[in-house]
Amino acid sequence: TETREFDNEEEARKEAERLRRKGQDVQIRKKGNRWELRRT
């Protein structure tokens, strides 16, 4: 599992969408005042 953190939700969602188009399974969750993007 690979995780990346983003400062805002929009960036996290854009990156998640990009990875999903490549066929990756991605989850986003709020972590304090940041957003965590998890690739499984």
Rank of each mutant, 00 (worst) to 15 (best):
residue 21 R to L: 12
residue 7 D to Y: 07
residue 6 F to H: 01
residue 16 A to H: 04
residue 17 E to S: 07
residue 11 E to I: 04
residue 39 R to E: 15
residue 27 Q to F: 11
residue 35 W to F: 04
residue 6 F to C: 03
residue 16 A to V: 06
residue 19 L to A: 05
residue 6 F to G: 00
residue 34 R to N: 07
residue 33 N to E: 11
residue 31 K to T: 09
residue 16 A to F: 11
residue 36 E to I: 13
residue 32 G to F: 02
residue 12 A to W: 00
residue 40 T to D: 09
residue 1 T to K: 09
residue 14 K to V: 10
residue 3 T to I: 13
residue 29 R to L: 14
residue 24 Q to P: 01
residue 14 K to M: 11
residue 20 R to N: 05
residue 25 D to T: 13
residue 8 N to A: 04
residue 10 E to R: 07
residue 7 D to W: 06
residue 23 G to M: 03
residue 25 D to M: 13
residue 32 G to N: 06
residue 34 R to P: 00
residue 5 E to F: 15
residue 3 T to C: 14
residue 3 T to W: 15
residue 40 T to G: 09
residue 9 E to W: 15
residue 6 F to I: 01
residue 24 Q to M: 14
residue 35 W to S: 01
residue 18 R to A: 09
residue 9 E to V: 09
residue 23 G to Q: 02
residue 40 T to H: 09
residue 24 Q to G: 05
residue 31 K to E: 06
residue 9 E to P: 05
residue 16 A to Q: 07
residue 33 N to H: 06
residue 35 W to Y: 05
residue 10 E to D: 11
residue 11 E to V: 05
residue 27 Q to D: 08
residue 31 K to D: 03
residue 15 E to S: 03
residue 34 R to V: 13
residue 8 N to L: 06
residue 10 E to T: 08
residue 4 R to Q: 13
residue 40 T to S: 09
residue 21 R to D: 09
residue 20 R to W: 09
residue 17 E to A: 10
residue 26 V to F: 09
residue 34 R to S: 08
residue 23 G to I: 00
residue 28 I to E: 01
residue 24 Q to E: 13
residue 35 W to Q: 02
residue 30 K to E: 04
residue 4 R to S: 08
residue 27 Q to N: 07
residue 8 N to F: 07
residue 7 D to N: 06
residue 9 E to H: 07
residue 33 N to V: 04
residue 29 R to M: 14
residue 39 R to V: 15
residue 20 R to E: 04
residue 29 R to C: 14
residue 31 K to N: 12
residue 27 Q to V: 14
residue 12 A to S: 01
residue 25 D to F: 13
residue 8 N to E: 05
residue 30 K to V: 06
residue 4 R to L: 15
residue 12 A to H: 00
residue 24 Q to F: 15
residue 38 R to N: 10
residue 38 R to M: 14
residue 29 R to N: 10
residue 33 N to T: 07
residue 19 L to P: 00
residue 33 N to L: 06
residue 22 K to I: 13
residue 8 N to W: 03
residue 14 K to W: 09
residue 2 E to W: 15
residue 33 N to S: 08
residue 21 R to P: 01
residue 36 E to W: 04
residue 37 L to R: 01
residue 35 W to A: 02
residue 7 D to Q: 06
residue 13 R to V: 12
residue 40 T to V: 14
residue 34 R to C: 14
residue 3 T to K: 09
residue 26 V to G: 01
residue 18 R to P: 01
residue 34 R to A: 07
residue 38 R to P: 02
residue 37 L to P: 03
residue 29 R to S: 11
residue 22 K to P: 03
residue 28 I to G: 00
residue 13 R to Q: 13
